[in-house]
Nucleic acid binder design. Sequence first.
DNA 1: ATCGATCGGTTACAAGTTATCACGAAGACT
DNA 2: AGTCTTCGTGATAACTTGTAACCGATCGAT
Lengths: 215, 215
Amino acid sequence: MPESGTKSPRERYRAQVRGEIKERAWEQIATAGASALSLNAIAKQLGMSGPALYRYYAGRDELITELVRDAYQSLADAIRAAFDAGADVTGLAHEWRRWALEDPHRYLLVFGTPIPGYRAPDDVTAIASRIMAVLIDAFAAHTFESPATPFDAHLDSHRQWAADHPAPSAVLHRALTLWTRLHGILSLEVAGHFAGMGFDPALLFAAELDALLGH
Amino acid sequence: MPESGTKSPRERYRAQVRGEIKERAWEQIATAGASALSLNAIAKQLGMSGPALYRYYAGRDELITELVRDAYQSLADAIRAAFDAGADVTGLAHEWRRWALEDPHRYLLVFGTPIPGYRAPDDVTAIASRIMAVLIDAFAAHTFESPATPFDAHLDSHRQWAADHPAPSAVLHRALTLWTRLHGILSLEVAGHFAGMGFDPALLFAAELDALLGH
DNA sequence: ATCGATCGGTTACAAGTTATCACGAAGACT
DNA sequence: AGTCTTCGTGATAACTTGTAACCGATCGAT
């Protein structure tokens, strides 16, 4: 977030307070989860009492929406940076996992059970498309001798989720499959469903990655 | 739940009210999600006011815990029934999906973001083991020529999650993979993350199933 | 059959939450 | 300086979960 230079001091102060609010919100989410987020507690932590916070965010939903957007953007940045640094699909997948485990509640806020009231803002789907585009680019380097499945044919005419990326539909399929398979493992791991099972989730993750990338 | 015959009328009444409470709770969860569950509203719907509900459930956590247990048991029964009716792995997977889509919030209550305070009761992991055992039995009918992965070796010494099922670790691996891959798709679908993407989730589901069962 | 303890339900209350309103103080701009 | 927007305040409303005290009906035992 550079380039916040030419602004009125009022707006700079406002932006800074909004940032502090989000910071405290993330602290609360990291410890107690998103549904335990308390605007009152945040305000108290910042030294101001109760309704002052409503000058900065219209309500709980708006704050959460912005947190979701930030989290999405954070994932997009991490994936993009890894790709620009030369990471292949395996590298992107491990970066994805690192990002998920770094803050489990953040991952669940983005990909987990949706908050009852709120609806995803439109720009979030744009960020998602950008993430998928990076995955597709990474897969485009590989070559696959994959038999065309019925789903591949279906994808040929349904590719707006990938920002109409010109890659062949088999590649789109791979990218989509990478997403769903990684999410299957990561969401279960992050939600603690592997807890009492004994095996090492990292090994399962690696095995799934190997299986996808041509056994 | 047969064999609830020889009970004191007090206990029968109590059991019936507890059942009605859970019914209303499921209605609320199905419409507004688990985090919007209101004990007051449930009590009001049942004609009794507020704190009377605490005679039946010690608090929110205990009610949710029982709902989670019931949902788990419901899935276990559905899978078990399909298996006993002769369903193969494909049939079990579709039954799993049918169960998930039948009540999305129920699926998310079990496999989604965990509720902040509550912890999964011990018997839930036992039910999970029973489900996994059915999956493993279904896979045991298949034969695989799979190269032993490092994860397979790891699973050989970490199989208590499958109730120490005697199947070879490659089969355990398949069953575990089925779970995580199906959950990856189903959780994203149920949480609405495929909403604006355009493609048909059912075809993606079928494609993943085909890919897993030996392309 | 009467007596007594337990159970079920009630109202009242405490401590929280989100959110709105009306007001005062302080900075910013003309 | 004067005005005007913004920020923070306390008061208030309508909620929530959960506890405490009380009262009546029912069930079990004598």
